[in-house]
C-alpha cells in the first residue's frame, strides 16, 4: 500500500509543481493519473522514488517513509519500486537481456554486475519475464534493434525484474501507435492483476485511461481535483481537470517538463558520484 501525505514540490525556479497532494493506493489497485501537461503528473511519480526530491510531505510505501532516507537506504527502497518510462529509456547499446538484468542491479554487488555474472535465479527470472512479455527469442538482440512496442515490453520486464511492490508508469504509450498502445496497456493490467501489484499510471489519453483504469485521479496545477472511478469522469469533471482549452496552461506545461527534467538530471549527477 502506498500513502502520500501532503506531498509538495517547488522547483528552484519558484514554480510550484505539487501542493499538498494526499493519496492512498491500496494493494492491487491500478490508478490512472490524468491532467493537462504541466499539472505535475511527471513530478508526482518522480517524487515517489525521489528521482525528483520532494520539498515537503511524506511518501509511505508499506510503512516506510521514503522522504528523508539516506543514500544507501534510498537505493534499497528503490528496488521495491519498478518504473516504466515514456520513451522506454532502455540502454540502447546493451542487449535486451542486459536491460532486463539491469533491474537486478540493486540486489547484486558491483563486480557481479560488471562481469555480467548474475546469480542463476536472476537469469532464470529474466528469461521467464522475457517469455511473459513475448520476447524470449530476442534476448540476445541489442535494444536499439527492437520496435517501439517491443522496447516498451523490455521496459516492463526490467521493472518486473526488480520484484517490485509498486509500479510507477510514466506515459507508457505516448510514443506508440494506438493498436500497440492498447496491447501494452492490456499487458500492464494483466501483470498487475497476476501479482496484485499497485500501479500509478501517468496517462494523457483520457479514453485509454477510462478503458483500462480502476480509479482515476485528476491533477490540475499540482492539486488533486478529481478522484473516483472512470464512470464518474463526466464532461464536467473533465472541464474541471483540463479547463476550457487553456492554452496558457499548455505552455506552462513545457516549462514544468523542462524543470522536472533538469531537476532529475541534477539528482542523477549527484547519485552517480
Amino acid at each position: 500500500m502506498l500513502i502520500l501525505q501532503s506531498l509538495s514540490k517547488t522547483y528552484k525556479t519558484g514554480d510550484t509543481a505539487l501542493s499538498e497532494v494526499s493519496l492512498t493506493v491500496p494493494k492491487g489497485q491500478i490508478m490512472g493519473l490524468i491532467g493537462p501537461s504541466g499539472a505535475g503528473k511527471s513530478t508526482l511519480i518522480r517524487c515517489i522514488n525521489r528521482l525528483v526530491e520532494p520539498t515537503g510531505g511524506q511518501v509511505l510505501l508499506n510503512d516506510v517513509d521514503l522522504v528523508g532516507l539516506g543514500k544507501r537506504e534510498l537505493r534499497q527502497q528503490r528496488r521495491r519500486i519498478g518504473m516504466i518510462f515514456q520513451e522506454y529509456a532502455l540502454v540502447e547499446r546493451l542487449t535486451v537481456m542486459e536491460n532486463v538484468l539491469s533491474g537486478r542491479l540493486g540486489y547484486v554487488p558491483f563486480w557481479r554486475s560488471y562481469l555480467r555474472r548474475f546469480p542463476a535465479e536472476d537469469i532464470t527470472r529474466a528469461y521467464a519475464l522475457l517469455d511473459r512479455v513475448g520476447l524470449l527469442q530476442h534476448a540476445d538482440k541489442r535494444a536499439d534493434a527492437l520496435s517501439g512496442g517491443q522496447r516498451q515490453r523490455v521496459g516492463i520486464a526490467r521493472a518486473l525484474a526488480q520484484d517490485p511492490e509498486l509500479l510507477l508508469v510514466d506515459e507508457p504509450t505516448a510514443s506508440l501507435d494506438p493498436k500497440t498502445s492498447r496491447q501494452i496497456m492490456r499487458l500492464l493490467i494483466e501483470i498487475c492483476a497476476e501479482r496484485g501489484l499497485p500501479a500509478i499510471v501517468n496517462i494523457h489519453d483520457v479514453p485509454l485511461a477510462q478503458q483500462f483504469m480502476q480509479r482515476i485521479v485528476g491533477l490540475r496545477a499540482g492539486r488533486v481535483v478529481f478522484d473516483g472511478s472512470p464512470d464518474l469522469l463526466t464532461q464536467d469533471a473533465l472541464t474541471t481537470i483540463y479547463g476550457e482549452e487553456d492554452w496558457n496552461a499548455m505552455r506552462k506545461g513545457d516549462e514544468e517538463q523542462t524543470a522536472a527534467e533538469a531537476d532529475a538530471r541534477d539528482r542523477i549527477s549527484a547519485l552517480a558520484r
Binding site: 537481456m97 538484468l101 542463476a120 535465479e121 537469469i123 532464470t124 540476445d140
Partner: peptide
C-alpha cells in the same frame, strides 16, 4: 518456477 529456462547467460560477442 521449474520452467525450462536457462540458468546461465553470457553476453554475445
Amino acid at each position: 518456477m521449474s520452467a525450462p529456462y536457462p540458468t546461465r547467460w553470457t553476453r554475445p560477442p
